[in-house]
Simulated assay, not measured.
Amino acid sequence: MKNKQAEIIKQLTDKELHMNLFLTHIILLMLSAVLGIFLFDNQSQFFKLFRFQYWNILFIGGSAAAIVILFDLLAMKLLPESYQDDGGVNERIFKSLSYPMIFLVALSVAISEEILFRGVIQTHLGLFWSSLIFAVVHFRYLFNWFLFLNITVLSFFIGLIFELTDNLLVTVFAHFLIDFILGIIVKIRGNDKG
């Protein structure tokens, strides 16, 4: 299964890979909207999950992101490269993107995934199920025990932050910072390689 996925990805052009990424996150937003219609009593119940508490957003979201980024950098430095091998997908995604496009990709991923997994699923099914579903949806990580463990722990960590703050803007900001900064690191490392 892993080899089949790698072959499919190799056949895609960078533009096709990026389009698939954006389409996936548009689908996640549409799924969030449909599920939200059925699961929330009204729109205001959903919109209460977004609170502009700048200190919480910046301090808690930023601190959470810093912890995750430092852990990932430490893992990249200390562990064999095979532990970080997702079949080259992240490198393919970020290596060819400009820095403004990395910003947009990170933002779209953070918004769509946090609305669905924290805002809709966690709000209605709880931390355990939302975190497990989040980890499984990141399909390419299923074939590497370290990446799967990493994404699962990350999901529980972000879910716990949502439990503590009850504010999607905190988790969106943390998720965005993680993806944006690590995306830049992947781009720089990918360009250094070749």
Results as ranks from 00 to 15, higher is better:
F52Y: 07
Y54E: 08
I9C: 05
S44G: 06
L21C: 00
N20T: 00
D14I: 05
I8S: 08
K48Q: 14
L12V: 03
I37Y: 14
R51L: 08
N20A: 00
F40S: 01
N20F: 00
F22I: 08
Q53F: 03
D14R: 15
I26N: 02
R51C: 05
H18D: 03
N42D: 14
V34W: 15
Q45L: 05
L21E: 02
H18T: 14
N56S: 09
R51I: 11
N42C: 06
G36S: 03
N42G: 04
N56I: 01
L12D: 10
Q45W: 06
H18K: 10
A64L: 11
R51A: 10
E16R: 01
Q45D: 15
I60N: 12
F22A: 03
I37G: 01
M19Y: 06
G61T: 02
S44C: 00
K15S: 03
K10H: 02
I8A: 09
S63Y: 15
I37D: 04
Q43E: 07
L29T: 08
L28Y: 08
D41T: 12
L28S: 11
L39R: 05
L21V: 06
Q53L: 06
L28Q: 12
L35E: 02
F50T: 03
F47H: 04
Y54P: 10
I60S: 12
L29M: 11
A64R: 13
K15P: 00
G62F: 00
F50V: 00
T24N: 09
I9S: 04
F40M: 01
F22Y: 11
F50I: 04
D14S: 10
Q11S: 14
L12W: 14
